[in-house]
């Protein structure tokens, strides 16, 4: 199998490490509000990834839902509970 320029694999190589870094960061910060915001960034990177993989409808949904509504819901909860986490 030979690789093909039409796959946009350069974006793939670039975005996936950032996604993994965001995933680790979202779980390791002690401030829960930071975790919520980082998970929003994670969703947005995922959205870029899906545009690159030709799934435009999924990307659109993720941009509206993941980066928008679910971040707001996580933020709302993080501000209502004790903001500092032990681990």
């Amino acid at each position: 199998m030979t690789w093909d320029a039409s796959l946009l694999w350069q974006f793939d190589l670039l975005i996936l490490p950032m996604v993994i870094i965001c995933a680790i960061a979202a779980l390791s910060f002690k401030d829960l509000v930071s975790c919520a915001v980082i998970s929003g960034a994670f969703s947005f990177l995922m959205c870029l990834l899906w545009t690159e993989m030709l799934a435009v409808d999924v990307a659109f949904t993720e941009a509206a839902v993941g980066a928008g509504v679910s971040t707001v819901l996580l933020l709302g909860t993080a501000l209502h509970v004790k903001r500092k986490s032990k681990d």
């Binding site: 779980l27 829960l32 998970s39 994670f42 990834l49 999924v58 909860t77 986490s85 681990d87």
Partner: peptide, 23 residues
């Protein structure tokens, strides 16, 4: 993770992984 909100964030990451696989 000890914090329940972190567990929930872990769940969303798990979900994103499954979606990445399908796409």
């Amino acid at each position: 993770k000890n914090n329940l909100l972190k567990k929930v964030i872990g769940m969303t990451i798990f979900q994103a992984a499954i979606i990445l696989f399908y796409v």
